[in-house]
């Protein structure tokens, strides 16, 4: 994939040899080695997350993605996007998996966009990526929560723990974005055209952080109720088994007096055996009906 350049006249992405500091570029980490102008700047930025020099600004921002994990299903993953912005160019450096999303969703309809506008679009999209992932995680959390209704083991609960932790990661990543944007705003002159863009992005970051943090806190607070649900499932099974045990004990208990080696009432009655069976099972049946009415058998 390497380095791609957006050709405004053709309205399409074309493969470029290297970054030329004029226009919009998408690069993967391997392609940076072929761009000496970028390499030093990106080196600075990877150490400090933000590097400003004159009108150039380079930021390394976290981006939230979704991925499939063999053990835990859909989980969140944090990737990083490095943006190098000059008045005439914008270079976006990200891992290969991010490039199609950038081209299709974040940078769609580019014909009339200036570099500043594109920078803002990418900044906002990276912030919104956390909210989008949070929404998916919450949907998954709700599905897992329903699966807990019949769960006996810890599989669902462990997945819920992972999702809660992922939501926490999103909040941390948003806070990191906020810190970077605040530093970038401090390092940018008030009259710079980039200043209002960074300011707007910072406000959005605060709003989204508040929202994602609220979701995280509220879902985390009810996690203990999930433990209760699983324990209740196990208790329900034990409850039903115990009522069956009690039911089995009843005929034995009621028939026991007729095992005694004493003269027994009705011992000469021809149908005593049938009578006794009818008596003990009748009593047991009455108890079973009463227990059923009181929900002893309900699962």
């Amino acid at each position: 994939m390497g380095c791609q350049f957006y050709d405004k006249t053709a309205g399409a992405w074309t493969v470029a040899e290297h970054y030329t500091a004029d226009g919009l570029f998408l690069l993967t980490p391997e392609a940076v080695n072929r761009c000496p102008q970028l390499e030093a700047v990106l080196q600075h930025c990877s150490e400090q997350r933000l590097y400003c020099q004159n009108t150039e600004i380079t930021l390394r921002l976290p981006v939230a993605l979704l991925e499939q994990d063999a053990r835990f299903g859909t989980v969140a993953r944090m990737a990083h996007l490095t943006l190098h912005h000059t008045p005439r160019s914008l270079a976006i450096l990200g891992e290969e998996a991010l490039i199609p999303t950038l081209q299709r969703d974040w940078l769609g309809d580019l014909r009339h966009s200036a570099m500043d506008e594109l920078l803002q679009r990418v900044l906002l999209s990276s912030i919104y990526s956390h909210e989008r992932v949070a929404r998916v995680l919450v949907e998954r959390l709700q599905v897992l929560r329903m699966a807990l209704k019949t769960a006996m083991g810890n599989v669902e609960l462990r997945q819920i723990v992972v999702l809660n932790r992922d939501l926490g990661e999103l909040v941390i990543a948003l806070r990191e974005t906020g810190l970077i944007l605040r530093d970038a705003l401090r390092a940018t002159a008030g009259e710079s055209p980039v200043y209002p863009l960074l300011d707007a992005a910072l406000r959005e970051q605060r709003r989204i952080e508040d929202g994602v943090n609220l979701i995280h806190q509220r879902y985390l607070a009810v996690t203990n109720a999930y433990n209760g649900i699983i324990q209740n499932n196990a208790h329900t099974v034990m409850k039903v088994m115990t009522v069956w045990l009690a039911l089995l004990m009843m005929p034995i208990a009621f028939i026991m007096p007729w095992h005694m080696m004493t003269p027994l009432p009705l011992e000469h009655w021809h149908y005593l055996w049938f009578g006794l069976l009818a008596y003990v099972f009748g009593v047991t049946w009455l108890f079973a009906r009463w227990a059923g009415k009181h929900g002893f058998f309900s699962m």
Binding site: T242, A246, M249, M250, I252, A253, P257
Partner: peptide, 8 residues
């Protein structure tokens, strides 16, 4: 169950 065990 305890009550049912006494006859045993």
């Amino acid at each position: 169950i305890i009550l049912a065990t006494i006859p045993l």
